[in-house]
Nucleic acid binder design. Sequence first.
DNA 1: CCTACCGATCGGTAGG
DNA 2: CCTACCGATCGGTAGG
Lengths: 201, 201
Amino acid sequence: MSPRKSAVEARHTRERIVARGMAIASVDGLEGLTIGRLAADLGMSKAGVLGHFGTKQALQLAALRAASEVFTRTVWRPVEHVEPGLPRLRALCGTWADYLETERATFPGGCLFTTAAIEFDARGGPVRDAVARLFTAWRRRLATEVATAVERGDLPAGTDPDQVAFEVFGVFLALNQEIQLFGSPDAHARTRRALDRVLAG
Amino acid sequence: MSPRKSAVEARHTRERIVARGMAIASVDGLEGLTIGRLAADLGMSKAGVLGHFGTKQALQLAALRAASEVFTRTVWRPVEHVEPGLPRLRALCGTWADYLETERATFPGGCLFTTAAIEFDARGGPVRDAVARLFTAWRRRLATEVATAVERGDLPAGTDPDQVAFEVFGVFLALNQEIQLFGSPDAHARTRRALDRVLAG
DNA sequence: CCTACCGATCGGTAGG
DNA sequence: CCTACCGATCGGTAGG
């Protein structure tokens, strides 16, 4: 029987739980992320797992938050200092595509946001709200980048930033499906060509 | 207590179960489609529901098959006799967009295929295979239509049909998300503009 | 972080 | 198509 742990040990345990939780949720959804499964995978008791969060919903929200930190670190941070506008937009499309391919250790079932969005889009509640907020924020980020590109003259005057953001999103939803459902090897080539068309000057 | 029913009555009951099942699965996923929930909604016993299918998996497959019949009836049948190539492609994009908006009584949680694809894309088994088959068949349908459009000179020579099919799919994935997650009123306008760009001659 | 437990629900079966 | 039941698992709690 494990005694109570120090604060740093407890924090480390919490991180292990959340990391495993992201992987499970990526495959089986945030509802399929059960406390018993998590406990078994980690060799802990259910109460030991739940004690870190209190409720399943809090665990789901913790997994979402952690996933958004992975996304920010992997997709946004590397391009943060690239020149705003079209250069940064193209750069983040690159890191975004890599993220879908590379983060498979973290998200073996594909992007957790996409999974969570579909899973909760017809429901209410804090989880749905958190997912919607994350998507909205990223869409806004894209639209802002497009707007800058237009101001700089890298995209035609009169381009609708929200329209381009919508279309870019569609390409990445298709890429995610191509990878996850079809395992298609030319998914990235298709994505690049589609983006070239959407972001054509 | 209900006695055994005649064959036609039994068939009617089965159809009621499947119809309700599609609606539930559209919101809560094919795993969230539980036998107890279905029985409660229909005022039946669990054994009465399950007797029509044998296993939950068979019920899931029945819901998918019924959904594909709805899709065919709503999206494909109305355009079946339109001139092949770009005219039919544009026409089916129209019925497809309408389907996402109109079939909300049948699929209150949005297109069942999109939900099922995300839910099962990281697993194996017959349900995943059925979903993948449906998507593949529809993608092939789109690509064939594009190829015909190229032959007829409605799209530029050298156009890659699979590339266009990929991009069209992306637009509709984005439309589904726009409707379900954001409830955006200009989703259809965005879709039309995106398709105009993808299908530009 | 553990053991021990709670009521509810899961998919499914036996038997009529 | 029903009642009655099965073992397994769910989220969560009490108490240490």
